[in-house]
Computed example of a mutant assay.
Amino acid sequence: MNAESLKRKGYYAVLWLTSLLFFAPVAWIVMSSFKTRNDILAVPPKLIFSPTFDNYLDLLDRNTSFVLQFANSVVLSLSAVVIAVVVSFLAAFCFSRFKPKGTNFLMFILLSIRMLPAPAVILPVYLMYANFGWKDSHIALILFYAMFSIPFSVWILKGFLDGVSVRFDETGLVNGGSWLHVIFRVVLPQLKPGLIAAFIFNMIFVWNEFLFNFIVGGVSTQNIPYALAVGTYSDGGLNWTFIATLTTIYIIPPIVFIYLFQKYLLAGMTFGTVRGEV
């Protein structure tokens, strides 16, 4: 075995070890969802046990709001992110192609919105929603999540648009196409990686959002993070079976999305800079 082969195997061993280290908490919570309460609290921890589905049945039987909360998470996330991606694409096209004065400063201001911690803006947002009667409204909450998702999406999509040559625009216009034709029929199909990356990044943000849903939302807009927060304690202690079961169900959609579209996430994290002009 030569040095190069040994070095490569050591490199992969470190990667596997790191991956398993980060995956261990996820594996533990999934395993715990199939354990009884006594098995979860056993010392030393039980790695070999008799799996049970009672925790999942109890979740559906006792938590009558679970289906509504899960549906809210899906509806709020998908609706807000779709709106954000559509608006962000049009804004990014303007910044990339027409380059209005102060574009760099405007992009900085947009990204600065995401730098603000949520507790810093929750009070004015709550007062605004309360005065306008928007509390406990799906539409109002969707628009808020969309607004908060737009800045990051604009940054991602502008990076991809800068990599698409303006010759495509010019060719479409010269051949009699309108700007709408150029935007949606010529340029948009080339932004599939950027659109998917923006969608998934913002989907994860909205999917995991708790504070605004808890303060600005209400009974009809409760999502899964809300359910985890209010259902953590039961019978004078932590309800580990509830936490493990609900968490296991909750992480499935993001894992599926990330697995299916993982190749686009790398491009999204580099804001499209891995692409040259095409």
Rank of each mutant, 00 (worst) to 15 (best):
L6R: 15
M269P: 04
G133K: 03
F205N: 13
N223V: 02
M269Y: 14
K7F: 13
F132Y: 10
S33F: 07
A80D: 04
V81F: 02
V74K: 08
P151M: 09
Q222T: 04
L68P: 00
F199M: 11
I29G: 00
D61A: 13
N131S: 15
T248I: 04
H138Q: 09
Y12T: 12
V219L: 10
Q69I: 06
L15A: 11
F152P: 03
F160I: 13
F201I: 12
K192E: 11
A91R: 01
A120H: 05
P100V: 04
Y233C: 00
S88A: 15
I258K: 00
A227N: 03
I249R: 00
V216D: 02
A27L: 15
F53G: 15
I183N: 01
S33C: 07
A244P: 04
V256D: 05
G102R: 08
L260K: 08
T241Y: 05
A198I: 04
A140K: 00
A227S: 11
V67P: 01
L260A: 13
I29E: 00
W28N: 04
L20S: 08
P254I: 06
P45Y: 09
F53C: 09
G133R: 05
L47N: 05
N38V: 03
N223H: 02
F271K: 10
L143Y: 05
L21C: 11
I204G: 08
P193K: 02
P51I: 04
I83W: 05
D58N: 14
L78K: 03
V87H: 02
I249P: 01
S32Y: 08
L161E: 13
V230P: 04
N104F: 09
L60V: 14
T247V: 03
P225L: 02
N213K: 03
Q262Y: 12
T270P: 03
T247C: 09
S19Q: 01
Y250G: 01
D61Q: 12
I142Q: 02
I251Y: 01
G268H: 08
A197V: 08
V30W: 01
A146C: 11
R167Y: 13
V186G: 05
M128C: 09
F148M: 15
Y250W: 09
Y226C: 01
A92T: 06
L60T: 06
M269E: 08
T241A: 06
P193F: 08
V164S: 09
V121H: 02
A84H: 06
F261D: 08
L15F: 03
I139W: 10
F108S: 10
V174P: 07
M128E: 11
L266A: 15
E277V: 15
K135V: 14
D58H: 09
P151N: 07
F160R: 09
K9D: 01
N223S: 12
R114Q: 14
A146T: 09
G276W: 02
F214M: 11
F23G: 00
V216I: 15
F184Y: 13
S178V: 10
P151R: 05
T36W: 06
A80Q: 02
E277M: 14
P25L: 02
A84M: 07
